[in-house]
Design a protein around this nucleic acid. Structure first.
Lengths: 159, 159
DNA sequence: AGAATCGCTTGCAAATTGCAAGTTAAATTG
DNA sequence: CAATTTAACTTGCAATTTGCAAGCGATTCT
């Protein structure tokens, strides 16, 4: 019978959650997916400068593995042969719910740099948000949907 | 100002997704959460035998970190001083949407051992499933909600 | 009292990660 | 069109993390 020994090491169990984590259960993979999904990033350098400080060898490795897993595609840009454009596949964009729920969870339980009110609104309009994310993907809209929530520069308060 | 340098290494950015992954972005953490959430597992040995083959030192480490992160609690059992009962906190049970999304994603895109029809039904009744998971948590119901989807024993077909 | 069980810890080898410095190919600049 | 810059990686190496097997201390069972 079909034995799907995975590209990324052996298959540990048939549990779907376990299989998911075999593909992107690490510190970096989902951040790349996030960058592609909501920030409109497309190039190696975009990811590299994306704020979390991934090193180039690991980034290259993750991109290779995500491509192998069918979550992203890589295509050399026509107008500039140095650039590689990465894009999410349908399998990749289908991770949107996972990322949205991670976002919501973290805003509820961690001290994040994301504006709580905005995320609450997104949580309430879950389906709508997911539809919009998918629309952007379908139409290759790569304007940022969410900004990088970096650590707040403390706003100059009056006191 | 409050500088939340995390227990688990430095805080890389304020991005909520990044913060989430700092806490459980690895091969094992979410599997422990899954075991607690839907399989009714509670002890070290339960996790150890849970099918994926985590080694004991790593398991101990993940349990410690999840506890530190406030995702699980550990309590020695009254009736048997050897046993430690692990349980999800509210922060932990709030990961249910994430796990459900992972489950659904994998069933859609990977060859898993979970019955597709069942998961499809769960996907359609998302809110209901989440409510039930939460109810189980609230009432400390630790009967299995989903079985371990191990690799299918090939059913003895006629030919 | 002795054996078993549970939840770990320890030691060590192997794999993975992170960092800094290349390298290659393509574009841009002067 | 030669020199420089840029983009996307590699490479080498040290540090960290992982995996495996064995062991250990505190109960509890027999």
């Amino acid at each position: 019978m079909i034995d799907v020994a995975n590209k990324r090491g052996l298959r540990r169990s048939g549990c779907p959650v376990s299989l998911s984590l075999e593909q992107f259960g690490d510190r970096w993979s989902l951040l790349v997916v996030r960058d592609l999904m909501v920030r409109g990033y497309r190039t190696f350098k975009d990811f590299q400068n994306s704020g979390e400080g991934i090193s180039t060898n690991i980034l290259a490795d993750r991109l290779r593995k995500l491509e192998l897993a069918g979550i992203i595609t890589a295509e050399v840009e026509h107008s500039d042969g140095r650039r590689v454009n990465y894009r999410l596949t349908e399998k990749g964009i289908d991770l949107a719910p996972v990322l949205l729920d991670l976002l919501i969870w973290a805003v509820h339980h961690e001290q994040t740099a994301a504006p709580c009110a905005l995320i609450e609104r997104m949580a309430r309009n879950r389906e709508q948000v997911l539809a919009e994310v998918r629309r952007r993907w379908r139409e290759r809209d790569s304007t940022p949907f969410l900004p990088p929530f970096e650590d707040k520069k403390r706003p100059a308060t009056k006191s």
